[in-house]
């Protein structure tokens, strides 16, 4: 049984595309990444799985249960962290945590306290006084305090400082080791690379790649920037070549040895070989997809 399984899942908002024929499987116990640019359909997918919106076509199940007919049962066994955590104004953090626990019918004071302590969250504050990052922490505790079997996280680290991000991912790794399935939606590739074993890339509502993270990263090109003289015409795997005087910049997807031999024949003053930024990786998949 899969933690998440969708078959030809589609959602249109009127005529506007949300997601199209999405086929996705996430095994139980996986730490799964879901990558895509803004507006690609990440949140639409998640909101459909949670039953907030009704799919226009296809079907999906979460923890083996149908998202349409068994919504309540599904929600009792998952934890969800929205990309923008908003709570009822006038409430204190502890009231929000209590409300969330009461709605789930669980007594999880101990777990909530431990999480608040690890995240450095003051439960006496009013939620509307909190910064974006601190509100996010409230959302994290709400998603985790009942120890769900499946965690669905929508851009969880936005607003968290680097130390907090590290602590947060440590908590996630611990939960994952204890058997929790984690579905992490993000547009930050490094986050996915560090934490996930498998990932899917979504673009314009469709899954364009789904594989282990190593395999996805391997097919990634590098951004090569150099100044000096070099003859690149014989080199295969060069894309997006930009020349400016004797400076070159290009995406390289070929064999590294070939590149080094080729550059060795010229005269290179400066050289940097770096991970391309996220846009470029998406571009890479887009082009692959287009071919």
């Amino acid at each position: 049984m899969f933690a998440i399984e969708t078959r030809k899942l589609s959602k249109y908002y009127g005529k506007a595309r949300g997601i199209v024929d999405l086929d996705l499987t996430v095994a139980k116990g996986e730490f799964f990444g879901f990558i895509g640019p803004n507006g690609a359909g990440k949140s639409t997918t998640i909101r459909t799985l949670l039953g907030l919106i009704e799919p226009s076509g296809g079907e999906a199940s979460v923890l083996g249960m149908d998202i349409g007919s068994e919504r309540k049962k599904i929600l009792s066994r998952i934890g969800y962290l929205p990309s923008e955590a908003v709570f009822h104004s006038g409430m204190r953090v502890k009231d929000v945590l209590k409300l969330s626990a009461d709605l789930r019918g669980c007594h999880c004071d101990g777990e909530a306290k431990a999480l608040c302590a690890r995240l450095g969250l003051d439960i006496g504050r009013k939620v509307e006084e909190l910064s974006f990052g601190n509100r996010k922490k409230v959302g994290i505790v709400c998603a985790l305090q009942h120890r769900p079997e499946l965690l669905i996280l929508d851009e969880p680290t936005s607003g968290l400082d680097p130390l907090m991000q590290r602590e947060f991912f440590e908590i996630l790794q611990e939960r994952n080791r204890d058997g929790t399935t984690i579905f992490l939606s993000s547009h930050i590739l490094s986050e996915i690379q560090r934490n996930c074993r498998r990932a899917a890339i979504i673009r314009e509502g469709r899954i364009i790649a789904c594989d282990s993270v190593e395999a996805l990263a391997r097919s990634n090109a590098k951004r090569v920037t150099l100044s000096g003289e070099a003859e690149l015409s014989g080199l295969s795997g060069v894309r997006d070549l930009k020349c400016d005087g004797d400076s070159f910049s290009f995406l390289y997807g070929g064999d590294m040895d070939d590149l080094i031999r080729c550059l060795g024949r010229g005269h290179v003053r400066e050289l940097s070989i770096a991970e391309p930024d996220l846009d470029e990786i998406f571009m890479h998949y887009y082009e692959e997809d287009g071919q």
């Binding site: 949670l50 039953g51 907030l52 919504r71 309540k72 049962k73 599904i74 929600l75 009792s76 969800y80 929205p82 923008e84 955590a85 908003v86 709570f87 009822h88 104004s89 969330s100 709605l103 789930r104 709400c142």
Partner: peptide, 14 residues
């Protein structure tokens, strides 16, 4: 309106 619907409706309550 206050965007709290997501919070409320992602709890196991019909």
């Amino acid at each position: 309106r206050d965007r709290t619907a997501e919070f409320l409706l992602t709890h196991p309550v019909s």
